[in-house]
Design a protein around this nucleic acid. Sequence first.
RNA 1: GGCGGUAUAGCCAAGUGGUAAGGCAGAGGUCUGCAAAACCUUUAUCGUCGGUUCGAAUCCGACUACCGCCUCCA
Length: 473
Amino acid sequence: MIKIFNTLTREKELFKPIHENEVKMYVCGPTVYNYIHIGNARSAVSFDTIRRYLEYRGYDVTYVSNFTDVDDKMIKQAKKEKITVDELANRFIEAFMADTKALNIKPATANPRATHMIDDIIKFIEALVEKDYAYEVSGNVYFRARHFKHYGELSKQNIEQLENGASQHLTQEEVTTKEDPLDFVLWKPQKEASEVAWDSPFGKGRPGWHIECSVMSTKLLGETFDIHGGGQDLQFPHHENEIAQSEAKTGHKFVNYWMHNGFVTVGNQNEKMSKSAGNFVTVHDLLQGEDPTVLRFFMASTQYRRPIHYNDDNMQEARERVQYFKNLYQNIDYRLNDQTSSQENTELAQLVNEKVAEFKAAMDDDFNVQNGLTVLYELTRAINQHLQESTVDKTVLTIFKEEFIKIMTVFGVEFNQKSDNLSEEVEALIKKRDEARSQKDFKTSDEIRDQLKGMGIVIEDTPQGTRWKKNES
RNA sequence: GGCGGUAUAGCCAAGUGGUAAGGCAGAGGUCUGCAAAACCUUUAUCGUCGGUUCGAAUCCGACUACCGCCUCCA
């Protein structure tokens, strides 16, 4: 039984999807005015890992993640680059797709864009106006936050404190148009003729930020769905507002489980990285010099709610872990294909079963990947010990390999099949080296080993013979 | 000011009442012609103070430090 920490209740709750064996989840995606930074990527990796685990446990997951493709930042950036907002969005959506693909994030079931759902957004706002939850003032449509009696519940804030905070940040326009400082905008009027805008019953304008997520999620997943995720900084006001709008309109509970991922921090002070702070590292830049698999594993191997400290020491550790797993995988293959006979080892077979069950138990507890990985390390140590025996149980190794692949798939780490053939030149060199070794001509054999290393082929001698692997780094 | 999070070895980190998982790095060792890969051994009394308890890292109180949200932000 899977337990999920629900931000709404601040407790771990037993996960019961609305429809048995089906999970419908929505994750807030980026505003596409720049390359994503590793904080954005962390969010995407966290929820992708959660999705993959749910699938590992047999659920059919519908995963929707949006693009915010129109807002002040988009307009500003497009203007600066003298291109349209749409062109800007297309460029960085493409970049997002490339970056997330590199990180082995599964494509979403749907990636809705705000600007592609303007009609639905307008209808949604109209419904709120009809219900008296929203009002129009000179082209602005605002939501009456105070009318929604659960306002502040997600972020555990009371109305007075929220009002106090909100009133300090009002623009002059908002002071004259808002009934209440707490009210938030659903529709913004066009400021100048060149600005991108759509016709609406409230005048030419564009949607506010929060409304798009309510519209897109309920349209694609239903008025009530299972999981809504996003970064911790979205709790207030974004998700609070989403709840208010959606429940005001539908009269039903919006989301059953709210999940929020922790931040990526950088620097000595472990400060939050963000676009606005300017201290961000983009995935695009980072992947110029880093194996994407390593970055993926780095972010997937911390539980989604914990902070991740991005620095080179921690990256180095991830590099070594990924290499360890690669070696394990290749060494299993090597033994599976060697000439030795198989010898049954019931003890190891049982251990594999036990550890796989322990892995599930660990992950079922709010996706505790640290404990899950610990179980995996315990098991891999036993397997590595076994691999050194003169005879191995090939049946168990095959079973373990399958389970191992499934588990690594949850973390988004995949190993290429050893399909690459060696060139004739390399094969001849390996053969020549073996001959030299059998004649104890170690000078020659070591020279050949160095030569092969220069060609990216690493040679390892084992009691079962000489094995090779490609050095990818 | 309000709300929330975190504090465990050099680093990462698990652990919510019974005398500290795991990983990295370090040290030593096994295997090897030498390597590589792998394995083995080895390193902490849990931010501070006080309380509850037979017994607390784990519960309660106070304090300190760092981080975040309250305004765009994953």
